[in-house]
Design a binder for these strands. Structure first.
Lengths: 331, 331
DNA sequence: GCTCTCACTGGAAGCGGTCCCACGCGGTTA
DNA sequence: TAACCGCGTGGGACCGCTTCCAGTGAGAGC
């Protein structure tokens, strides 16, 4: 018994057929049949043959792998550990990829190294790439080098995208707070560099304007600490605020803690509404009302599009955000 | 300008050298030098050449990719979205992989499909594989097919592993509760199938025995809901419990909520201590004391080992768990 | 001045597949 | 019966790159 991995040639020899026929049978392609199929399958089983992905990729020009790319602050990958959002992206993709027998490659980049790294990734992309947190500029650049790209964040119009209705979601959240009778509604936005944060800000402003409210807001990174500090600051400037719209659940968790620390009761004194419906939302006390984004569905749709292959430039599907009422906005 | 991707042949032609020389320069290998190096680099820049990974992998027999494998309940990937633990694993690996120019492939399997799927993955593993949530049996099977494997969970002795001291951590947690004067300490364990959960249970039992406490415990899945229900059940059976050791922060978040819902104050009436120090731990109210596992460091160490290449069967590094004191155990 | 090194360089053989194409053979149609 | 068709099959040319090996020329030693 040789310890070297069996190749398709070994299979062909054992089965007594040509390499071409073996390939056809293994790939379940037409043009081979009956007894030969059986013999090849037997040979495969006997040898424990498993095709070499690299060779397959090279020969066919279309290996089966999907790339997920996120660009964030240093260190690369830092985001992954701290924000459950990204896990949901991966989770949404896995079942489909598993069914398709495709692999998932994860790339985490930092802003400074992103441009060249993106080019490199674009060169290696096979089935397609999903951009999960990339600035519009970078997304466009990437898309120029690799057409098989789908973005999960608002981006240049040319890049196909499966995006959440961040504007509408933020609008709905503020409206809900207003509906609850809140009038001194503050907002905590995400970092300016994030296009999601930008859209949520737009939705907030639109609602504030339409409802005739005063605009009170602060910005912070998408972390619990960021939310905590922003809330403290906001509370110092506007001690009478009675509601906070927070652009991310993780921040919102910090906001609830800050409010509690400052003697405000949630939801009696201050209503809080988050965004994302991440695991953190249900872990807070009281549990957070939030705008649920169908992240998994969006990611799945992106993969489905990539697997289908017919990706039309400019395609855009908008996924609505759904209000999840929990205790932080109970009256 | 042809739209076809340039190949190394194009580079060689433009640079006026042979393909072999171009390859040497591009791979920074010895045996080519001086003016030729410059010319090749110029050609690369001019053409925007980027090597084809598949071809490289095939020709050299050693592509650069690390596989991360987790086996969980259906659907495959479900775990990823709901438990921040796994994100930390990926986050810990990314910086090292980025430096090494290696790719990260993520595989999520469900229990029923795992055995065959694992064999297939093992055949494709290149730099190595990291097992992040696999039963000892499956881990051993995988390791038999692929030596370049490191486990992040307790497993068969032969499989190299970077594991957390779950036993010691659980022991320390219970001891801490005892130190705080708690005597009616309950425990909520994870699912029996998880070897981490099993070890944490062992640590708990050891402490309980040594401290002469009564053993009170329940088991639940590693989710907030699981923790909530287990806590309710425990509370019904033992209304006088004054502390809970919970084998996972996500469950612990549910426990805190259940305690609050049942009129217990945390930490005044009941101390709660979690495990993992995941994002959820700091989002709860009050924030959770917990046993911090250096997940990122463990994952990084695993990658470092794989990149170094000298993986000795049976290698085992134990990472201590560190008590993080937060409000849920304040006195 | 003529070998002998030695550092470079290019030719060419794979790596393990996919897939085009030519070939042979039994069965129709003229 | 001859030309024709089509399916199943095998031969062999690639895919893009690495790497072995033989060849080349310049410099050194005799």
């Amino acid at each position: 018994m040789s310890s070297a991995k069996p190749t398709i040639d070994d299979v062909a020899r054992v089965a007594g057929v040509s390499r071409a026929t073996a390939s056809r049978v293994i790939n379940n392609a037409p043009g081979a049949s009956g007894p030969l199929r059986v013999r090849v399958h037997e040979a495969v089983a006997k040898l424990g043959y498993l095709p070499n992905e690299a060779a397959r990729a090279l020969a066919s020009g279309r290996p089966r792998a999907v790339d997920v790319i996120a660009v964030t602050c240093n260190p690369p990958g830092g985001w992954l550990g701290s924000n459950p959002y990204y896990s949901r992206v991966l989770a949404g993709m896995m079942p489909l990829l598993a069914d398709a027998g495709a692999q998932l490659r994860v790339h985490a980049l930092s802003h400074d190294s992103a441009p060249e790294a993106l080019d490199e990734i674009a060169a290696g992309v096979t089935l397609g790439a999903v951009l999960s947190d990339v600035t519009p500029t970078l997304a466009a650049r990437f898309h120029r080098r690799c057409r098989r790209t789908v973005s999960l964040v608002p981006t240049a119009a040319t890049v196909p995208a499966m995006v959440a209705d961040n504007i509408g979601g933020a609008y709905a959240a503020v409206t809900e707070l207003h509906r609850l009778g809140r009038r001194r509604i503050a907002a905590i936005h995400g970092p300016v560099i994030s296009s999601c944060a930008a859209d949520r800000r737009i939705g907030h402003l639109r609602a504030v304007e339409q409802l005739g409210l005063a605009e009170v807001s602060a910005a912070a990174p998408f972390t619990r600490e960021g939310g905590y500090q922003a809330a403290q600051q906001l509370l110092a400037q506007h001690p009478d605020l009675d509601a906070v719209f927070v652009a991310c659940d993780l921040m919102a968790a910090g906001v609830v803690q800050a409010l509690t620390a400052c003697g405000r009761r949630v939801p009696e004194d201050v209503s809080v509404i988050g965004f994302d419906d991440s695991v953190a939302a249900s872990c807070t006390n009281p549990p957070l009302s939030t705008m649920r984004l169908p992240v998994e569905e969006m990611a799945a749709a992106a993969v489905r599009l990539l697997l289908s292959g017919d990706i039309t430039s400019g395609h855009r599907t908008l996924f609505p955000a759904e209000l999840v009422r929990r205790q932080s906005t109970a009256r």
